[in-house]
């Protein structure tokens, strides 16, 4: 059983939270649930409504998109990555499925707590924005190249 200080140490290593002072990190650790997933177990499912974001503490997970009949692994997540924040921020269904690719330890932060965190700590907000902006930039890039590819095919 890990005590609160172990979790605080883990959280501190997540870049997003690196600027938060210890007392607040403790609160965050207390308020969030530490969960262990077995390989192949689904952390969240595409299309479900989201009520929490997850920070990966240990292990790896894959991001899977389901189309009509097939599923496609679009990305891999690793330690210190944060995932699931989009559904929380804009009240949309989960955009992808996250599945544990090995033993996976995550910290589950509820919607309410996550939003409190954002409003209390501008640094965290900026961090989240950066993550989102990165993703947006990458997606735009991918869209651009996909369109180019399509155009090339004629």
């Amino acid at each position: 059983m890990s005590s609160i200080m172990d979790e605080v140490d883990l959280l501190r290593r997540v870049p997003l939270f690196s600027q938060i002072d210890t007392a607040k990190l403790k609160l965050l650790a207390l308020a969030s649930e530490r969960l262990r997933y077995a390989p192949g177990q689904v952390v969240m499912r595409q299309g479900d409504t989201g009520d929490a974001a997850f920070v990966i503490i240990n292990g790896e997970a894959e991001v899977v998109i389901h189309n009509a009949h097939e599923e496609q692994v679009v990305a891999h997540l690793g330690r210190n990555d944060i995932v699931g924040e989009i559904a929380i921020l804009c009240d949309v269904p989960r955009t992808a499925t996250i599945r544990a690719s090995g033993d996976l330890d995550v910290l589950k932060i509820t919607k309410d707590r996550f939003i409190r965190l954002l409003s209390d700590f501008p640094a965290v907000s900026i961090g989240v924005m950066r993550v989102l902006a990165d993703r947006l930039a990458r997606t735009t890039q991918e869209l651009y190249s996909a369109q180019a590819e399509l155009a090339a095919k004629g």
């Binding site: 007392a23 403790k26 609160l27 207390l30 308020a31």
Partner: peptide, 17 residues
């Protein structure tokens, strides 16, 4: 006291604990 002193009284953490 150490953790919750500055917490607003309506914070759900109180209930949780």
């Amino acid at each position: 006291h150490e953790l919750f002193a500055d917490l607003s009284p309506d914070d759900p953490l109180f209930d949780q604990f």
